[in-house]
């Protein structure tokens, strides 16, 4: 099969493997055809988040994607390319700290029930592969958007009974946060762990309203407004 990889220029490679994953194809090219092909990988079992990239413009984990003849492989979007398929995730990961994505523990940890556990079990499956970040169209207009994985992490902690200061987190995601999302759902479609950041952002909007915040996009006219265009 033939695939094309976006390096300094789009480069075609041919490999002969049976029903391989993309990571197997990349390893084959690197070790037998071109030692300079550059990409990241780790666990090869979809849990370490190292090998996210785009195939035919859609984000996948290379270790979890079965290659089709003619696939075009590109690095993730919205992040500076270091080389070939390796991007610099520092800024993206930095939004975690900006969004206070950790638990502020309570003096006495409350007991959790099975229902409590279900509330954020899925969100805690996140592997920080940045697929969602890459797919997000908001970065075209706002480079400071806190982004899907950080906001999912915020939801994970504010929905946790053990969190002592949920309001602090809600406060910090008002600006460049939940209201900047267009709810386009691209992040959900590409998440290898089946997490919907879009749904988490909607839930965070509900929580924000409970804390007395309102949608700044609707606030210009004041009063009741169900989304008519503002001029």
């Amino acid at each position: 099969m033939k695939i094309k990889i976006q390096r300094q220029r789009l480069t075609e490679y041919e490999v002969n493997l049976k029903n391989p994953t993309l990571l197997e194809v990349l390893n084959e090219i690197k070790t037998t055809q071109d030692n300079s092909l550059t990409y990241s990988s780790g666990c090869k079992s979809s849990v370490c988040g190292s090998c996210a990239m785009r195939v035919n413009s859609k984000e996948v984990l290379a270790c979890g994607y079965k290659v089709q003849d003619g696939d075009i492989i590109e690095p993730l979007n919205n992040m500076p390319i270091i080389r070939d398929l390796v991007v610099n995730m520092d800024k993206a990961l930095g939004f975690n700290k900006k969004s206070i994505t950790w638990l502020n523990p309570q003096a006495n940890t409350p007991e959790l029930s099975q229902d409590d556990e279900k509330r954020n079990a899925l969100q805690s499956d996140c592997i920080l592969c940045s697929s969602c970040y890459s797919s997000c169209p908001v970065y075209a207009v706002n480079e400071e958007f806190k982004g899907p994985f950080s906001l999912t992490r915020v939801f994970k902690y504010v929905s946790d009974k053990r969190e002592a200061k949920p309001k602090e987190k809600i406060d910090v995601i008002q600006l460049n946060g939940i209201w900047d999302c267009t709810l386009c759902n691209e992040c959900t479609l590409v998440c290898p762990q089946g997490i919907s950041s879009k749904a988490d952002i909607e839930k965070l909007r509900m929580k924000s309203i409970q804390f007395g915040y309102s949608d700044p996009n609707f606030s210009i006219g004041g009063g009741l407004d169900f989304g008519a265009p503002q001029f």
Partner: peptide
């Protein structure tokens, strides 16, 4: 384990909330 629980690890729970 108690420390991990206190900082937010999402352990599975029993029906008795353990």
């Amino acid at each position: 384990v108690e420390w991990l629980n206190s900082i937010g690890v999402q352990f599975s729970r029993t029906k008795e909330n353990k």
